[in-house]
Every structure is written in structure tokens, then in C-alpha cells.
Amino acid sequence: MARKMGFYEDFGLKLDLQPVVTDQQSIDSLLAGKGDVIHIDLLSALNLNRDSTVVVNIAQISQKSPIWLVGRKSRGIRSLQDFQGKKLGMWRSGSNLITQTFLKDHNIQMEIVPIDWSINLFTQQVVDVINVMQYNEYHQLLQSGIPEDDLFVLSMDQPQYNIPDEGFYVRADFYQQNQALCEDFAEATMDGWTYAMTHPQETITEVLRIMQEARIRANSAHQSWMLNQMKDILMANPDNFGRLSKTDFDNALKIMQQTGKITRNISYEEFYPRAKPR
């Protein structure tokens, strides 16, 4: 909506969107200098900085963890303990570290089946539990004929594991050279989100139009669900709208260090330079 409403142009920015399928493709594009800004989850971004500061956060979209673990009650999944020994369809990249940490902390052993985006392994009963985004795949399950009251849902939105998801990142050197541009981009983007949340019908219509042009499966009920859930995720901490809080950063870094993904110390200001007083 920021692009449609001309918010980027208002800041003198010219936006070129590049389609990708996986997060890794985004990261590769950024590191290769083909793109300037990417949209990945917080843990993946921290992972990029495990040895040195490669990327910095310029805007934090998600303010809480949207990850849910879902099983079917009719197939015997009624509590966390029922996960024991079952097959879990889990994203092979991105924020799966939260789920892994959670299961390890609760001493739950599961057979992990790495997946990309499809829910069909779950609907075809190939896996017993699947991780889903609250705003996306969960609703796809409902739209595939699984009654909501048949679903057992475990949200990662709980202390220690509530790591925010998506944010915008640029290379650290790019930020040093284009600080104002990055901040303008962040501001225009969040203006776009604000407009989307206050103009839901217009937003849904526009998104449906774009998806249909790109021949991507879409329906208005699902887009409406997504927008409502994103509003919940974006406004989970209204004081930090569009910003990465130190608490969230610290929690994310702690998980990365606990799991041995990162051994060095990374400062909040180093990862999120917009936190520095200007």
C-alpha cells in the first residue's frame, strides 16, 4: 500500500520489488548486491551476523512471535506431551530455531520433516504436527476443511520464545552510506502498514489484484484474515511500532547464543543502529 499510495515517492525513493521464493534467495540477493533491502526474520538476520556485522535492522514489522504448532485432536494431538515421537513438519529455514529450542526445553523428541510452505503434508496426514504462521498457514488449514475445534494449537507467543519475526534489513555498509535513505524507507513502509490497517477493504482489493496478476492462489476471506492477524502482530507493542525493542533483541540473541549459533557478543546498537541517538 506504501507503494500504491506513493509514500516512497514522497521520500524521493524509487522502489523495485524482486520476487523470491525462499528466505535464502533474499539473503543471497542482498549479499550479492542485487538488492538493497530484504525482508527476513530476526533470528535469520542474527545468524548472518554470527561472525561480523553483515546486516542491520532498519524496521521491525512483527512485534511478537506469530508461530503456532498445530495438531489434530482427532488424530490424538491434545497436549504438548502428545507431540512426543510424532512427525513435525517444520520450515527448513527461518525461525525454526524457536521451535527447536522450545521442544528441547520441554524435552519433546519429534521426527522433524523439513518443509517449505505447503500445508499438504499435514492435510494428507503425512506429518502429525506442523508449524504455521498465525496469519497465514493456520487459516489455510481452516480453509482446507479442517474444523477449527479439531485443531490443537500451541503458540510460541510465550516468555522466552516470543521472538518477533519479520523485519527489514540492509547491509551494514549500505546503511553507513545511506542512513537517511534507510530511515526514509522504514518510515514510508510503516506509513504503508498504517494505511493498510486503516483501509482494510482497499488493501485487500489491491493485494488480491496483485496476486491474481502474479497467478498466485488468493481469496478475499484469507486476505482479510491475514490483515486482521497482521494488525494484531504489528500492534502487539504499540510503543515500538516499526521498531526493534532491546528486550526482543536480547531474547533473540540469548537463544542464538544458547543454541551455539552465535558465540560472540552483538550489541543492540550495532544490530539496530536506529537505536543510537542522532
Partner: peptide
């Protein structure tokens, strides 16, 4: 399909976009 997705329908806009449940 097995997820209620329209595979064929008189209105092509529904095909592969809508399920009976989304409708």
C-alpha cells in the same frame, strides 16, 4: 480436491483460489 479447492468451476476466478470453506 481433497482440501475443498475448486479444481473446475463455471467461474474460473474460483478455480485454485477458493475452497468451499473460503467461499
Amino acid at each position: 480436491s481433497s482440501t475443498g479447492t475448486f479444481i473446475t468451476y463455471k467461474d474460473p476466478a474460483l478455480v485454485m483460489n477458493q475452497t468451499l470453506f473460503s467461499l
